[in-house]
Amino acid sequence: MDYLASAGVLIGIYIILAAGYNLIIGYGGLNTIAHPIFFALGAYTTALLAIGTGLPPVICIAAGIGVAVIASVFLAVTTLRISGDYLLIASLGFQLGLLQAINNLDFTGGPSGLSNIPVTLSGPARGWLYLMITAALALLVIWLVHRGMSGPFGRAVRAMRDDDVACAALGRGLFTMKVVIFAFGCGTAGLAGGMYAYYFQYISPEQFNVAQSATILTMVVLGGIGTIWGPVLGAFVLVALPQVITFLQLPSSLVGPLQGLIFTSLVILFLFLRPHGLVGTRTPGAAH
């Protein structure tokens, strides 16, 4: 049964990632795929603080969020002038460059990562406790995204996506809006990273590579980009379904690749059968 809780926590973390990323790419219209690096920054900051200082978890996670936000503002301010596909590639360069650094620095544990993250909650209910916290945080993020995008800020964001020049000519500062969206979305990735580090107690650079970018992007796009519940559903389906085979008692060397196969097959299937997302909007990227 602990296994179910573990899968639940993972789903919750991915929901946070997908919801935050959806804000950036679906509402903000910013084509970056560097989301996992902010996930990584949150996870590594939290883990390093937890290992090195023993500060309370809340503070460690807050620091993780902070680092993710700072890094995202740096990326946003330097690259938001870059248009379209090139922004995507630039963000990829940023992600892989930072990942290389994490991979080669000593204090991050290099390729083998950090495995001595202290236990914070213990006892038989640990899994369920984490599940509840993660679920609550996921709901909070969804709620905030929903509130943000249905209010006046969200209206300006939609206007920007429809016609950025007209929106700016009405007095809306697009650059600031984009940076704020980016920072918020990446901050939630930092939060997800903090939760991940505390729960799984092990992080390594390969968990945050291009494959992870593709995973989160896929959850958002296949779930329904620019909708509130689409990414949530996408994260749920794409994490939960591959988990099913863990019940088959297969050797562990098979489980990883098999899960990967299920995941990628699902993506390809959805891509061709449900091109407008599970929560189907006609035009991808439109909120209505």
Partner: peptide, 8 residues
């Protein structure tokens, strides 16, 4: 609601 936070 120019600010995201206040808008949220």
């Amino acid at each position: 609601g120019e600010s995201l936070l206040r808008s949220m």
